[in-house]
Simulated scan of single mutants.
Amino acid sequence: MGIDPQPGWISGGDKPKEPRFNDPKRGKRLQTVMADAGVASRRACEALIEEGVVEVNGVTVRTLPVFVDPAQDRILVNGEPIRREALVYVMLWKPKGVVSTNADPAGRPRAIDLVGHPTGVRLFPVGRLDADSTGMLLLTNDGELAHRLAHPRFEVHKTYEVVLDGDLDDSALRKLEQGLHLADRDRPGRRTEPIRLQLISRERRTTKVLMELHEGRNRQIRRMLLLVGHKVRKLHRVQVGPVKMTGLKSGSWRELAPEELEALQNASAKSPGERKGRQARVGKVRPLDARDSSTQKASAKRKSTNANRPIDPDRLTPAQKKAEEARARFAKTGRVPKPRRDANGPR
């Protein structure tokens, strides 16, 4: 009686059976090697494998996981060998109105269109930064590092400078720090992970804060602030893990310095089970309790005064009126409003 074909390859009749490809000791995941070579994104490469258009050492593979040694194994996609390209790591200051996805049906400007790397390699954004947001966006063809930096399991934090409408009081700050319940489209709603906050300034009509989080849920910061009654005016990413955005202006890019790349690799190197605690932060995020006493007293005075003062709709700004309406709808229905859409696609 013959032996059944092993998972991950197709038998060739009575030919000798090939060794298993699903042994992690063989090397890296096939879809990661393909993504690093610029074939497509990691998920698209997984689809190509399952379609049966990928061969490893002459054997068609269809079932994941598949592990390969890029230096030893011959990998073909649609009969063509994949290229072994040098790994490239780029930092971009993404301007407003530019999307971070490589495929946009609406035809808006893409982040990759701003990077003309001399090698011509196909780059992919690390995570997402919505079109209305600006700041630091990493791009690379290193699929493994991109996965580790973007996936919340590895707890690589991202830091944002946020300007919002109105006076964000201490009660709202505490709620944001502790986490809020957000609904998701494709899964049951759940509470956000605790975040770190630093109050930068409070003006008459706006508040500026520094927010640090390691999740990447859809429009998370905007939705969280809307739940506490504030609309975001400006959202600007300033740091990923231990690396800050420096030496750039809007729309420009540069390659990561060796020490920056090493810092990102170290920050995402350990598996979640090996973590003994949160990674060290570069730059101090001052806790709320460390604010000077005068700021706390002024905040307490405003809070006690405003608590007993009825809201006069005629004195609210348009943005504050929208925030009050959104807060009232949420209190009544428990639903978070979906982002607006227009003829030009999602915003």
Rank of each mutant, 00 (worst) to 15 (best):
residue 225 L to I: 07
residue 209 V to D: 05
residue 134 T to Q: 00
residue 97 G to L: 02
residue 36 D to L: 03
residue 105 P to S: 15
residue 296 Q to Y: 03
residue 150 A to P: 01
residue 217 R to N: 04
residue 282 V to K: 10
residue 306 N to F: 06
residue 251 G to I: 02
residue 265 Q to W: 08
residue 301 K to M: 14
residue 29 R to I: 09
residue 209 V to K: 11
residue 121 V to E: 01
residue 191 R to Q: 06
residue 310 P to E: 13
residue 101 T to C: 13
residue 221 I to R: 06
residue 253 W to Q: 13
residue 148 R to K: 09
residue 27 G to I: 00
residue 90 V to Y: 01
residue 136 M to R: 01
residue 164 L to H: 04
residue 322 K to W: 04
residue 328 A to K: 04
residue 56 V to D: 02
residue 184 D to F: 08
residue 252 S to H: 09
residue 211 M to A: 14
residue 13 G to V: 02
residue 25 K to R: 15
residue 282 V to N: 11
residue 272 P to I: 07
residue 320 Q to S: 14
residue 133 S to R: 03
residue 47 A to F: 02
residue 22 N to T: 14
residue 42 R to H: 09
residue 333 T to D: 13
residue 12 G to E: 09
residue 232 V to Y: 06
residue 136 M to I: 01
residue 322 K to S: 12
residue 50 E to I: 04
residue 141 N to R: 04
residue 335 R to K: 15
residue 295 T to H: 10
residue 274 E to Y: 02
residue 213 L to A: 08
residue 166 G to I: 05
residue 278 R to H: 06
residue 184 D to E: 03
residue 297 K to T: 14
residue 209 V to I: 09
residue 129 L to R: 02
residue 195 I to H: 08
residue 78 N to I: 00
residue 256 L to S: 12
residue 320 Q to W: 04
residue 207 T to L: 05
residue 85 E to Q: 03
residue 314 D to P: 00
residue 139 L to F: 08
residue 261 L to D: 07
residue 245 M to H: 02
residue 75 I to W: 02
residue 342 D to L: 10
residue 128 R to V: 05
residue 226 L to Q: 12
residue 104 D to E: 10
residue 80 E to M: 04
residue 230 H to T: 09
residue 277 G to H: 02
residue 105 P to C: 15
residue 163 V to G: 06
residue 280 A to H: 05
residue 292 D to Y: 09
residue 90 V to P: 00
residue 329 R to C: 11
residue 30 L to N: 06
residue 71 A to T: 00
residue 183 A to Y: 03
residue 308 N to T: 11
residue 295 T to F: 10
residue 76 L to W: 00
residue 191 R to I: 07
residue 70 P to D: 11
residue 109 P to Y: 08
residue 313 P to M: 15
residue 32 T to K: 06
residue 326 A to Q: 07
residue 238 V to H: 11
residue 213 L to M: 10
residue 113 D to W: 01
residue 224 M to F: 09
residue 118 P to N: 12
residue 256 L to G: 14
residue 172 A to K: 09
residue 57 N to C: 09
residue 297 K to S: 12
residue 231 K to A: 15
residue 152 P to Y: 11
residue 185 R to D: 04
residue 24 P to F: 14
residue 114 L to A: 04
residue 310 P to Q: 14
residue 30 L to V: 13
residue 16 P to R: 14
residue 38 G to K: 02
residue 84 R to Q: 01
residue 47 A to V: 05
residue 67 F to Q: 12
residue 12 G to K: 05
residue 35 A to P: 00
residue 133 S to W: 02
residue 310 P to T: 08
